[in-house]
Write a protein that binds this DNA or RNA. Structure first.
Lengths: 191, 191
DNA sequence: ATGAAAGTGGAGCATTGCTCCGAATCAAAT
DNA sequence: ATTTGATTCGGAGCAATGCTCCACTTTCAT
């Protein structure tokens, strides 16, 4: 996967590359302060570009969100096999992996909502999370089933959606602890 | 609590009463077809009144939502003690009561989101649900704890919020079954 | 019947998502 | 260095929506 030389198409213009970088940085900053549902204008202003430029580089809001969080999602996905290998049991590995995911989600204001929403503008985001994380989750789930630790009738997709949902608005209410409830949900998996 | 005769203040004008009724009916209909987050203009149009009239009767969106669903929430709250009395165990009663709540929530498009959101405009809604349902839930939870059926470290408020969250977007994705996941969450309560 | 109080309607402002196209910029060719 | 065609940019402008404000209308006690 070499990004630097694509023979068929001409490389992107220098200013376009600069702007894309600026946009990514700006979005990351704004997402932290105002959540992933911050106004497009705010991100554009922070990056010092016009709105047209945002839509040119990231046609849908989800494209920008994915670009900003891709690394962290990948890291979470890649942590799965390691946990499975080094944990005392598949169930324990699953629990630790889920904690990773929850910690990621609850610190990204508004991300869990966007994830659950089936709006067309968020399709890319939804799909990226699903494509990347569901297979890992599925693997851990199956290992735990084989080990006889959990029930076999819960799918990885459904579990991930449930965890995502439990993280919605978790940052807005001090009386609500998403980690604790996700823990409850996961212990509900036990045979 | 007699609504029909309030001595000190003059009774509401006849046209105002008519409009309030029309608004309630219109809102109920629109909530079914377009969800509780339907545009205010749509509800006004359906009721055949101006927008000013909506805001006069129901200053915040939550007021209208509460007015529409008050009966059903009350019914759910009142079903609690009966279930506790007639079920084989407190835990079973809790499970059945939670099913009632979930069935109510998943059929009201967008309600679960509004419930979880801590926006000021939804404060009344949030508070009404909490005031009405948390005490009932707490009672069942405590009974189940006393019976030694569930762990004692989960609060009623947190559980209700978790259930509400699991119902978010439940109507938008056929691969996701809120009832099943709530069931999982509740079985996670077991000691 | 009448006038004050209560209620109404919808124009209008603010916010936000998104499109569109003339202007600005870039890079290849000369 | 200049030209020139392609690429990219910027932000005005449109549409949707929440909410306010107040001149006008309706009701009702007198």
């Amino acid at each position: 996967m070499d990004e630097s030389e694509k023979s068929p198409v001409r490389a992107k213009r220098a200013d376009a590359q600069r702007n894309e970088k600026a946009l990514l940085d700006a979005a990351a900053a704004v997402f932290v302060s105002s959540g992933v549902d911050a106004p497009v204008r705010e991100i554009a202003a922070q990056a010092g570009v016009g709105m047209g430029t945002i839509y040119r580089h990231f046609p849908m809001r989800a494209d920008l969100i994915v670009a900003v969080y891709r690394h962290q999602v990948d890291a979470c996905a890649e942590a799965g096999p390691g946990l499975l290998a080094e944990s005392a049991s598949p169930y324990e590995a699953l629990g630790r992996w889920v904690d990773l995911f929850v910690d990621f989600l609850v610190t990204k204001h508004g991300l869990a909502v966007a994830l659950g929403s089936n709006q067309a503008s968020f399709a890319t985001l939804h799909d990226y999370f699903i494509d990347r994380l569901v297979p890992v989750c599925k693997q851990m789930l199956e290992a735990a089933v084989v080990a006889g630790e959990i029930r076999r009738d819960v799918g990885a997709y459904e579990l991930m959606r449930g965890i995502g949902n439990l993280c919605i608005f978790a940052d807005k209410d001090s009386r609500y602890d998403a980690r604790r409830l996700v823990g409850l949900l996961v212990s509900g998996l036990r045979v």
